Amino acid sequence: MHTTAPTIKLLTPADAALYRPVRLEALAAHPEAFTSTFEREQEKPVAWFEERLAASDVFGAFIAGEIVGTAGFRREDGAKTAHKGVLWGMYVRPQARKCGTGRLLVDAVVAHAAKRVEQLHLVVVRDNLAALRLYTAAGFVEYGRGVKALKHGGRYHDETLMVLFFDGRDATPPR
Rank of each mutant, 00 (worst) to 15 (best):
E32C: 05
A33L: 03
F34R: 03
T37D: 09
E39R: 11
E39W: 08
R40A: 11
E41T: 05
Q42Y: 07
Q42K: 13
K44C: 10
K44S: 10
P45F: 11
A47V: 12
A47F: 12
E51D: 13
E51R: 13
R52G: 06
R52D: 01
A54K: 09
A54I: 11
S56R: 11
D57S: 13
V58H: 01
A61W: 00
A61D: 07
F62G: 12
F62R: 06
F62Q: 10
I63W: 05
A64C: 06
G65L: 10
I67V: 07
F73Y: 05
F73M: 04
R75A: 14
R75D: 07
D77R: 15
D77G: 15
G78H: 13
A79L: 15
A79Y: 15
A82E: 14
A82Y: 15
H83G: 08
G85I: 10
G85L: 03
V86D: 15
W88V: 06
W88Q: 04
G89W: 02
G89H: 02
R93T: 15
P94G: 08
Q95C: 03
A96Y: 00
A96G: 02
R97I: 07
K98C: 05
R103A: 12
L104D: 05
A108L: 07
A111R: 11
A111D: 14
H112I: 09
A113V: 03
A114D: 03
K115N: 15
K115W: 06
E118R: 12
E118F: 08
D127V: 07
D127P: 02
L129W: 12
R133K: 09
L134W: 04
L134G: 04
T136P: 02
T136M: 06
A137T: 05
G139K: 00
F140D: 03
F140V: 00
G144V: 00
V147W: 07
K148E: 09
A149P: 01
K151L: 07
K151F: 10
G153L: 09
R155L: 13
H157A: 10
D158H: 03
T160K: 03
V163P: 01
V163A: 07
L164D: 01
G168H: 09
P173D: 08
